[in-house]
Computed example of a mutant assay.
Amino acid sequence: MSTITTPDGTRIFYKDWGPRDAQPIVFHHGWPLSSDDWDAQMLFFVQHGYRVVAHDRRGHGRSAQVCEGHDMDHYAADAAAVMQHLNLRNAVHIGHSTGGGEVARYVARHGQPQGRVAKAVLVSAVPPLMLKTAANPGGTPIEVFDGFRAALAANRAEFFEAVAAGPFYGFNRPGAKRSEPVVRNWWRQGMAGGAKAHYDGIKAFSETDQTDDLKSISVPTLVLHGEDDQVVPIDDAGRLSVKLLRNGQLKTYPGYPHGMLTVHADVINQDLLAFVRS
């Protein structure tokens, strides 16, 4: 397996496909998944001549199940270690959900200062802040995330099945056709990771205020969000993010769920390609 070891001794797994001299497209996965969640996009872009890279976040997938460092700062630093190891430049960074938060922090604190980033894409992403606070009254109450933690600690396997079979892909909507293979693949990816990383990750994706990250990003940034996202509601994330970005544009999708990059890959892939080529 292709791995690197970060400065704090954490082993990170990554995939690196395609011509080494082609423009890199780097994918950052959501909670509690792995780089496998980007299969449809990595195959699509490598077939279009790009170099595609994705890593498993610490504690997720095939990376080390360490006890500490499950926060946005470490996520971004781990991504930076992979980029430095591969010496990627002129890269387009695409992040889904928690991975969108990772992209925002990576670009702001590492990628732009090092001159490695050409563009960024936030797909159904968590920034600027999911949690309801006095300054963010439209956010999600802390009790919801406490419920996530309780359900994960009580029976992680059951909780993950319920998320995948329900709101993540919109399979809980009237008339929706549930795909058992998609649900099983989500569950498989989640259960491959570590419970401690997933438990701590709830705080990372829900309580990290990334307002300053978004404000500091100057590269062209595309924000994609489904209008029926039950996990990260568009009004509390996508619409707010684009207002904070210096060079951002928003594209929304009526009726699309949080996991639209999987169940609507044919549409999302074409829109991503158009932005990369623009």
Rank of each mutant, 00 (worst) to 15 (best):
S2N: 14
S2Y: 02
F13I: 00
W17D: 11
A22G: 03
Q23G: 03
P24K: 00
V26D: 10
V26K: 08
G30L: 14
S35Q: 08
D36E: 13
Q41D: 08
M42Y: 03
V46H: 04
G49A: 03
R57G: 10
R58I: 14
G61C: 00
D71I: 01
A77T: 06
A80M: 07
A81P: 06
A81M: 09
V82G: 10
L86V: 05
N90S: 09
I94N: 02
S97R: 05
V107E: 09
H110E: 13
G111T: 00
Q112N: 05
G115E: 03
V121I: 05
P141I: 01
P141W: 09
V144I: 13
F145G: 00
D146K: 03
F148L: 07
A151V: 07
L152T: 13
R156S: 15
A165T: 01
Y169M: 05
G170A: 02
K177H: 14
R178A: 11
W186Y: 15
G190D: 11
M191H: 12
G194K: 00
K203M: 13
K203F: 13
A204M: 14
S206G: 12
E207T: 13
T211F: 08
D213M: 08
K215E: 14
K215R: 10
V223L: 08
G226D: 04
Q230D: 15
L244A: 08
R246K: 15
L250R: 08
Y256C: 06
T262M: 10
V267N: 09
L272T: 00
L272A: 06
V276K: 01
V276I: 11
